[in-house]
Amino acid sequence: MKGVSFDLAMSLMAGVFVSLIMLPMIALFSATSVGELVNQFRSTAVLSAVVISLETSLIVVLLALCLGIPVAYLLAMKEFRGKEILDTLVDLPVSMPPLVAGLALLILLGQNSIVGSTLSNYGISLIFSKKGIIIAQLFVSIPFLIKSTRVAFESINKNVTSASLTLGASKFYTFKNVLLPLAKNGICAGMVMTWARALGEFGATSMVAGCIPFRTETMTVAIYQDVMSGELTSSIAIALLLTVFSFTLLLTFKSRFKRQILL
């Protein structure tokens, strides 16, 4: 009897959680009509925001792969001085408010800093540009890829790596043919999380890239701008698109991941 009550209490809590997630979604979906949505998606401003968001977030995923996998490899497989510091640095963007991250990037890349002015001398301007969006999104989202990939590397049996080496394979061959394939699921999970985080990034992006329509206005920035200027219908349309996109992305990944585990 006690066991049943316990399960019931747990289920009730889970019910509260489901309501917490589902009710805002339902509210969002019920706030507009299909006709209105179609109209909004014909608007060039909305389409531009969608394209900018997809473009920048996909580049961020690629950059995160290039930078994140080596960091995850080092953290998972090697012992070295300063490992704890590197580990903390990976966690920092997650715990730091995006606005603070954006402010830090703005100061670093602005004309008044050494980095900003040097880049400016070479004709490179990162502030208020798509490059700025990418840097801001990368800053806040890369930890998701690193952490997920690190766990994947750590879960690989060390003897499997040693076996590859004793069979004559170099470290690079082993990395390419053993470690990467075995960490594939973790890397994919990290990519999905990074992509979702980059797509949903608002605070740091708006600080670094501003809100210039057709140039730096991402979907999340557009939602904010539209709400502030009273254009609720277009913000709802973009919000719905983001929600459906994120949900589909996660669902697709989860079903694929589950199938692979069953195999």
Partner: peptide, 27 residues
């Protein structure tokens, strides 16, 4: 290790889980 010309059989076999038996042996 890769330059020593040794063969190593591990206690837990350490087979490559993502490769078939043939591919493991051909590695």
């Amino acid at each position: 290790p890769e330059k020593r010309g040794i063969g190593f059989v591990f206690q837990d076999y350490a087979l490559f889980p993502h490769l078939t038996v043939f591919d493991n042996m051909a590695y």
